[in-house]
Design a protein around this nucleic acid. Structure first.
Length: 882
RNA sequence: GGACGAUUAGCUCAGUUGGCUAGAGCGCUACAUUGACAUUGUAGAGGUCGUUGGUUCAAGUCCAAUAUCGUCCACCA
């Protein structure tokens, strides 16, 4: 065989291996004949995006489960896609367009702008796809979907039509979150809150027919406190708490609204907090959500004084045309002139900002489309809560279940209309004759108006909230291809925990409504990936780790492992170069393990061993260890504990197989066991590190590729026996000798002799072969000769160590410091004595003996016995030292 | 204001249904160029598991308080 390089070079193989998987059709479940399916619909990244470590982290988890299930013979589908990501993409693309052409979208017009954005997305999504492949995700690209694909979109729009028929849709003037920069309404979840320093203005509103605004001695006012004085132009009332005695005589009276000079009432409403500000609140129904509610209940009416560009409207009198900020300053000046400004206090408060562009949100009233989430015919929120409570969906980690239920409980109607251009337009038509009030819901443009038979019909200008279409992703994707309904509901959905409300919640609601089924059986949340200091990655901080650069430098397998390990499900984790390096090193270790195996004569991977193949205690030991490992990690993956599974596998691979078994195998070759264990190791690692394992596999000249080979099965009948224990004792002996050498600073070049004493001839016999002696001699112990059962009297100058019933006497030729040795033993005696005392106390406790399981008791008795023997030996030893 | 999470070695974190004297990686100390690997090997130091109570034969693990940090939700007139 050709000489293999000393270090593994992932860059040379990864792309080619991925191409072979794709060309082989292994990602496509149609090529599997299995009846059992496994499906994970991948969260569609924004079509205009770039792969970041967050994606990489999610894909790693998805791919591990996908590959594991594929190897277990399931017809496995990981379905990829792209999201048009309405507002996000429009913001990004418009910026780019303006930078390049100096024009805005209005210069191009809706149709042209849409087409340009579409082309932009198509172009970018190809780039994104090539990046996704780099991480090794075994997705079926032949099924890739885009949220605006006609077949996908048709299903989504049909849902709207059905919902409208079922009375879940309404159009109406409501107060909504308006982003002046994006020029669109936003749903509640698209608004962020930012703690900002601000001011609380106390403004005196003169009472009607009492006192005067000029501040006479008898002047009577009611003082309100507000952080947004400019909104007073739209006030239609002042509210106080009905229980507030300070104002009880004022309720029902009117005030004269300063600057506007309108007469507005004082009303009582229990939603007013008596303790805040003055206890009296100005009510601006057009520009505050709570005021809207109060205004509606008290029929106060509304005056819109801020427009969709965040400028004061005509109704704002002399302030019309000003920005809200300008108006605020001018109003303060004017109020001071009128002597109506009582005071200004500093106050921190939350400002609502747009999730996408961070512009301050203006709450205003607007005509929008809503989904009634608690409709009579079908309550989306109640059905969702029911499904979650019934565990129709299992959520990992489980604590997100409560969060989700609470969120549904408090969910308000969902505003689904956006005034952007990028996205699917509402399938709603209006007749020019009939006016705004009547509309026709239909996928196709109707020929005539059903009311007046007029032919002039125009389509509603609104586009759908992105989450309306992606909320249906679980079934629109599978329904768009015949035969794929066997994958619904899918087995697994994996997403960042930041998508809990945006996406997970909507998918559950929409799927239950449309398909009467949950969208997926398992919902798995990943945490956020942060930098070394625990900060979020962000472009502006420049602390980002580019997954592609990382893959180029360390390999995709190393990146996958570093994203997976050292973290628990749903918990944030940190990623930094040193960490990735350690897994690059591990990949290299695996490479060298394989390289050693492959260098053996006639080496080949072996699927099953015969009993004749197992010759030595070491063979038996490693096969048993392997078997335990297979059993454990399979159990852990089934329990979604993939990081723990990988950890156990890593220990087995590095510490058991490489550090011990390979060294022993150098002494007495056993290609069969080597081939058997490596075969299993490569298979077990494949879901975690698909590239390197497939590459190693290919070097062993297999017929089938690793990706579709079978996941190993544990042999449940394999038990620990005297042979496996004998090897563990040898390991102990070797470690002890090395330990003694280091402690006494005896360099390895110096050869030593040892004597093994053991009263039990049977146990001793297990070490007495030439092979076992060779192991002890050659595993970095520097032992030259071994003798057995010499009378202890003759060994007074030897250093004694005890391993169970075996005593090791090491001849260091007086290189040992007697006093130091005594101190060491004394320390150990104290240690063991404490332990033994504790153990004895426990074992003599009646409650323990009667209540603890028998297995635990016998285990503890066993260790106690062992430790007691050790203790008596140590005590004897210290006596002989004098 | 409400909910959730975190608190374990110098650092970053695991620790499954409570059960053998609490683990890993990095870093640190000492040693080692041995026939796959210095991206390595060998040995070692380092922890009263945030605090206080409780349940239990048994608590890092369960419960209750509490402190600190963080996240989300709501309110902020």
């Amino acid at each position: 065989m050709k000489e293999l390089p000393k270090t593994y070079e992932p860059q040379k193989f990864e792309d080619e291996i991925y191409r072979q998987w794709e060309d082989g059709g292994f990602f496509n479940p149609d090529n599997s004949t299995s009846m059992e399916t496994y499906c994970n619909i991948l969260p569609p990244p924004n079509a205009n995006g770039e792969l970041h470590v967050g994606h990489a982290s999610g894909y790693t988890v998805m791919d591990i489960f996908g590959r594991y299930n594929r190897m277990n013979g399931k017809k496995t589908l990981l379905l990829p896609g792209k999201d048009h990501a309405g507002i996000q993409t429009q913001v990004v693309f418009e910026k780019k367009l303006t930078a390049e052409t100096g024009k805005t979208r209005y210069d191009f017009g809706r149709e042209d702008f849409y087409k340009k954005t579409y082309d932009f997305c198509m172009d970018r999504s190809g780039y994104m796809r090539s990046q996704e492949k780099k991480i090794g995700i075994s997705a079926d690209w032949s099924r890739e979907r885009f949220t605006l694909d006609p077949t996908v979109l048709k299903t989504a729009l049909e849902t709207f039509v059905k919902m409208e028929k079922d009375g879940l849709i309404y159009k109406g003037k409501r107060i909504i979150n308006w982003c002046p920069r994006c020029a669109t309404a936003l749903s509640d979840v698209e608004v962020l809150h930012k703690e900002t320093p601000g001011k609380l203005y106390f403004i005196k509103y003169p009472l009607e027919n009492e006192g005067s605004s000029q501040g006479g001695s008898q002047a009577k006012f009611i003082t309100v406190a507000t952080t947004r004085p400019e909104t007073m132009l739209g006030d239609t009332g002042v509210a106080v708490n009905p229980a507030d005695k300070r104002f009880s005589n004022l309720v029902g009276k009117n005030i004269i609204l300063p600057l506007q000079n309108t007469i507005i009432p004082i009303i009582a409403d229990k939603r007013i907090d008596q303790t805040f500000g003055t206890g009296a609140v100005k009510i601006t129904p057009a520009h505050d959500p709570l005021d809207w509610e109060i205004g509606k209940d008290h029929n106060l009416g509304e005056i819109q004084i801020i427009d969709e560009k965040a400028l004061i409207t005509e109704l704002g009198g002399k302030y019309a045309g000003m920005t809200t900020h300008e108006a605020r300053e001018q109003i303060i000046v004017d109020l001071e002139k009128l002597n109506l400004l009582e005071k200004i206090e500093e106050m921190g408060h939350n400002v609502s900002i747009c999730e996408r562009c961070k512009t301050t949100i203006e709450p205003l009233t607007s005509n929008q489309w809503f989904i009634n989430v608690d409709a009579e015919k079908f309550s989306l929120k109640k059905k969702a809560i029911e499904a979650i409570k019934n565990s129709e969906i299992e959520i990992f980690p489980n604590n997100f279940q409560k969060v989700l239920i609470d969120w549904f409980d408090n969910m308000r109607d969902w505003c689904i209309s956006r005034q952007i251009w990028w996205g699917p337009q509402f399938p709603v038509w209006q007749c020019d004759n009939c006016g705004q009030e009547k509309y026709i819901v239909s996928l196709e443009k109707p020929k005539n108006c059903p009311h007046c038979h007029g032919e002039k019909l125009t389509q509603d200008e609104n586009t759908f909230d992105t989450w309306f279409t992606s909320g249906q992703w679980a079934y629109t994707t599978l329904e768009s291809r015949e035969g794929d309904e066997i994958f619904y509901p899918s087995d697994m959905m994996i997403m960042g925990r930041d998508l809990l409300f945006f996406w997970a919640s909507r998918m559950i609601m929409m799927s239950l409504y449309t398909t009467k089924q949950v969208p997926f059986k398992n919902l798995f949340f990943t945490g956020l990936v942060r930098d070394k200091e625990g900060h979020k990655f962000s472009k502006s901080k420049g602390n980002g780790i580019d997954p592609l650069e990382t893959i180029e430098k360390f390999g995709a397998d190393a990146l996958r492992m570093s994203l997976l390990m050292d973290s628990a499900p749903g918990q944030d984790s940190r990623l930094y170069e040193e960490k990735i390096e350690t897994f690059r090193n591990f990949a290299n270790k695996l490479w060298n393990i394989s390289k050693y195996c492959l260098s053996q004569e006639n080496f080949k991977l072996i699927e099953e061993l015969t009993t004749n193949d197992i010759k030595t205690p070491a063979d038996k030991w490693i096969v048993k260890k392997l078997n335990d490992t297979i059993f454990e990690i399979t159990k852990l993956i089934e329990a979604k504990q993939i990081a723990l599974a990988a950890d156990i596998l890593k220990t087995f691979t590095w510490n058991d197989f490489a550090d011990w078994y390979l060294e022993v195998n150098k002494i007495e070759k056993n290609q069969a066991v080597l081939g058997f264990v490596l075969d299993k190791i490569i298979r077990l690692w494949h879901p975690f590190m698909p590239f390197i394992t497939e590459h190693i596999w290919s070097l062993t000249k297999q017929e089938k590729m690793l990706i579709i080979s079978a996941w190993p099965k544990a042999n449940l009948s394999l038990q620990k026996d005297s042979d496996t224990q004998a090897f563990e004792t040898i390991q102990n002996i070797i470690t002890t000798i090395r330990n003694v050498r280091t402690e006494n600073k005896i360099e390895l070049g110096k050869k030593i002799s040892i004597i093994l004493n053991c009263p039990d001839e049977k146990i001793l016999q297990a070490f007495k072969s030439e092979f076992q002696e060779d192991i002890i001699k050659r595993l970095k112990t520097g032992v030259e000769t071994i003798e057995y059962n010499a009378p202890e009297k003759t060994l007074e100058n030897y250093t004694k160590r005890i391993i169970g019933t075996v005593n090791i006497f090491i001849n260091l030729e007086n290189a040992i410091d007697n006093e130091k040795e005594k101190a060491r033993i004394e320390k150990e005696i104290v240690n063991i004595e404490n332990f033994v005392a504790g153990q004895k106390a426990r074992l003599s406790n009646k409650d323990f003996v009667s209540k603890a399981p028998a297995q635990v008791i016998s285990q503890q008795q066993e260790t106690l016995a062992k430790k007691e023997v050790e203790l008596s030996q140590l005590k004897k030893q210290i006596e002989t030292l004098g």
